[in-house]
């Protein structure tokens, strides 16, 4: 169930933003990618997720659990994402947000999963609340549970703790990495903050288009 990148490169206007890089992320492993703003970190995540915006180009092969992802639309890749903002849908309740990506099935079963997720996020009884009535930390936890309930086979994290205050960050890091590790899926994280890097995790640096081990 590894996430494999083979000679992946990102281009912009005929220039290579990221030179070819190969990488294997093992199940349960979290790899952190650090680099200056505008170095192309987030663009790489977009490419892996399958929605690279039009001025950018990319080459190379990506596979997840041995299945090639090239050409697959985002919704078929089963890659979960967390962003700087929680991006909870404002027109849906917390529970509806959690149901959004969950595979179809019996209603009772799905609702049970929602309840379990809310309990795990320490938000029991919050299901019917609109997202904007929650605090930042609560929303971030809902966002993670929402992503995990879609049963992803890999996770991409784009500076997920960036907008939270320091105390919250610390508790949320534990929450996020704990859950991802428990599901034994590969995870690639982009961040500015060295403190985000999980203990013993691999750290890569992106500098002037080249990816190197720290």
């Amino acid at each position: 169930m590894a996430l494999t990148l083979e000679q992946v490169s990102i281009g912009l206007a005929g220039r290579q933003l990221i030179r070819p890089v190969s990488l294997v992320i093992a199940p349960g492993e979290t790899v952190t990618l650090m680099g200056a703003s505008g170095s192309g970190k987030s663009t790489l995540l977009s490419f892996l997720a399958g929605d690279l915006a039009s001025p950018f180009t990319a080459a190379g092969a990506v596979s997840l659990a041995g299945v090639a992802l090239d050409g697959l639309p985002p919704e078929k890749r089963r890659i979960g994402r967390l962003f700087q903002d929680d991006l909870l849908f404002p027109h849906l309740t917390v529970a509806e947000n959690l149901l959004f990506g969950m595979p179809r099935g019996a209603r009772a079963k799905r609702m049970a999963k929602v309840a379990a997720a809310l309990a795990e996020a320490d938000l029991p009884g919050f299901g019917d609340r609109p997202p904007h009535t929650l605090s930042g930390g609560q929303r971030a936890r809902v966002a993670l549970m929402r992503a995990l309930l879609a049963e992803p086979r890999a996770m991409l994290l784009d500076e997920p703790f960036n907008k939270l205050d320091a105390e919250l960050r610390q508790s949320l890091r534990g929450f996020v990495f704990g859950h991802i590790a428990a599901r034994r899926i590969p995870c690639l994280m982009v961040t500015h903050d060295l403190a985000d890097v999980p203990l013993g995790g691999r750290l890569l640096l992106l500098k002037e288009g080249a990816v190197s081990h720290a």
Binding site: A49, P73, E75, R78, R81, D85, G101, P103, A147
Partner: peptide, 17 residues
């Protein structure tokens, strides 16, 4: 548009998102 990106990351097709 990030809402659309988020929705598609949650396995919604273009039309469904």
């Amino acid at each position: 548009v990030r809402y659309m990106v988020a929705a598609r990351a949650l396995a919604a097709s273009r039309l469904s998102a």
